[in-house]
Nucleic acid binder design. Structure first.
Lengths: 337, 337
DNA sequence: CACGCATATGCAAGCGCTTACATCGGTGCA
DNA sequence: TGCACCGATGTAAGCGCTTGCATATGCGTG
């Protein structure tokens, strides 16, 4: 493995100059820089990241703490992070936290503290106070995407607003009996997103002078299958008969569409269905949704961290709101059309 | 940030002993080890990975080179890798190669050579000779999952066998007119999987004395939507009228099921449909498939790499075959039932 | 023409660990 | 009792870079 001194010798300069030339410092003459680059290229020299990190204190590596790798929302978000980070020449190291408490503690108290990364993005994790403080005490830029967090700089999305927007769309279409598929309240202990969306749903109803009816709510587990089952429950319930369903995720909404079809409902003629997320399948199923641009969320978080890394002066905005947007497609229609 | 010498002082030993005690070397007395661990714990000491790597030459970090993060197959596989690797206390750093040639070259010629990782898993990449050699010249354990590769240790799956198995199942159910949704042959330049599956399909047909009919083939793009469109083409084609369809991926198979339903076919009464992959939605759609256990593939690759890292003696088996298994569900049935 | 200053380069001291080798007491055994 | 040996520990030399500081060189200016 060729080292920096070989390059130095080949280029006829000191190792200091090689280091400066290769890392783009400005106080190297153009001719020297070229000579060094040529030599490095020719010898196939690549800087050793551990040596470089040890000496400089910078790793050019971003840590991503993420609860799931194999779910659409998370992998799409990760993909957004990866693109942005890669473009800047940084690497990503992954910390996939599992429900296992002990392992999770280890990630925060040990893995992240090994000085392997220059910054951390924590994705859609409901962070405890201990964990937030652990991140803070890392002494490096940190950003959380998702749940609001008192202690950390956060890119958060207004889940209440998301729920309200979807519901208002349905109301605007003349629907009065709107079912909702959300999450089990017991879930809520450490995952507030679904109940925020439900709050948005209910507040929109109330604003329209409608009282939420408990029999029009059904919990689901955020999968297609869960949405399917929930919709069957909801639609089969005596006295329910909604004319529209708002599901707290696109996957559940798709499940609901399939369930409705199964039961002989025509969507949207007999039943309007709306979701939340902007799932890639939404286009195929012609699903009305509130897009929350997950890839964009990742890219934005990455850009923020990178920006702070490059100019530590510019402090991270402590709290930023992520955009969302109603996408009207064929799964919702004016009532009675 | 507390360093190893602070711990040494607190525990009343030398830094060498701290290093040995904390990294589980055997020549440290139990009492000393405990004292050191206690001190480290109390001071919140965590070893600096760059210093440790520089001194030891080991990073406890595995590089994963992967073309997509946001597709089910890849993210599931990655998830399998992550679980295995994390369990062993290793980190993952991600190298998401994009179609951009220049960037891809950079990954192989620069990023991976920065000595940030101890081993590399290359996922389902059609590697060029230059790339394979670049991996080899890294001087560390490397394993490729997927496409066969002459030069690298490979975990490969018999795509021909996969296609044959699915087809044989349909044949065994009495189907003679079987449609196939595969990939565009032009795709094939650097992605051979679909055509291998097609070969399997055709060889099974021939073995049963049936000549493959070109009008029963339709390319798709491996998405639900692509499968949907392909199936509509296939089923709408005059003179085609298959009694079964074999799709080269579960997502396309699901698309085909939806298309069939749209066109008024009952599945499996009028039309049997089978896929390949073991996609999580397969259960929901009651899809017959050949499961290739993607998470297991990831776990296995990780285990192999880790094993070689721990005992460099045991050479990586150069070529291993991955298991697959026919999972019969409700989307296929004996003809005429 | 001497001086100050800016720019290009070299020197060498770390960065925070790991580990080969040296040292130091025991222990067991002849 | 003496010696070989072994396990526990310490000493110190790096690992391969980065960077503060010193030095050299060249230039503009009074």
């Amino acid at each position: 493995m060729v080292g920096i001194d070989e390059v130095a010798r080949a280029a006829g300069v000191s190792t200091a100059t090689v280091s400066r030339a290769l890392s783009g410092k400005h106080n190297v003459s153009d001719s020297t820089r070229e000579r060094v680059q040529e030599a490095a290229q020719r010898l196939g020299y690549v800087v050793s990241s551990s040596a470089s990190s040890l000496a400089s204190g910078r790793t050019r590596n971003i840590g991503v703490v993420i609860p799931h790798l194999d779910r659409w929302f998370f992998s799409t978000l990760l993909s957004g992070i990866a693109e942005e980070v890669t473009r800047a020449g940084y690497d990503i190291t992954l910390y996939n936290v599992t429900p296992d408490r002990e392992h999770r503690r280890q990630v925060f108290d040990t893995f992240l503290r090994r000085q392997r990364v220059d910054g951390v993005i924590a994705v859609a994790l409901e962070l405890g106070e201990h964990e937030s403080r652990a991140l803070l005490s890392l002494g490096m830029p940190v950003i959380a995407i998702g749940g609001p967090n008192e202690l950390l700089p956060t890119l958060s999305i207004d889940d209440v607003g998301l729920g309200r927007l979807a519901t208002e769309h349905l109301l605007a279409m003349g629907h009065l009996d709107i079912g909702h598929i959300g999450a089990d309240p017991e879930f809520d202990i450490d995952f507030h997103i679904p109940s925020s969306r439900r709050h948005g749903f209910e507040s929109a109803l109330r604003a329209a002078g409608i009282d939420p009816r408990p029999e029009l709510f059904e919990p689901g587990d955020f999968t297609i299958e869960g949405g399917f089952r929930a919709a069957k429950q909801l639609l089969g319930r005596p006295g329910a008969s909604p004319t529209a369903i708002f599901a707290a995720s696109d996957e559940m909404a798709i499940g609901a569409m399939l369930a409705a079809r199964d039961l002989g409902y025509r969507v949207p003629t007999d039943l309007s269905i709306a979701g939340i997320d902007g799932h890639e399948l939404g286009r195929f199923f012609d699903l009305t949704t509130v897009d929350q641009f997950p890839a964009g969320q990742g890219a934005r978080a990455a850009a923020t961290i990178l920006h702070e890394l490059e100019q530590p002066a510019g402090s991270v905005p402590d709290r930023e709101e992520l955009p969302y947007e109603l996408v009207v497609r064929g799964s919702t229609a004016r009532i009675g059309t």
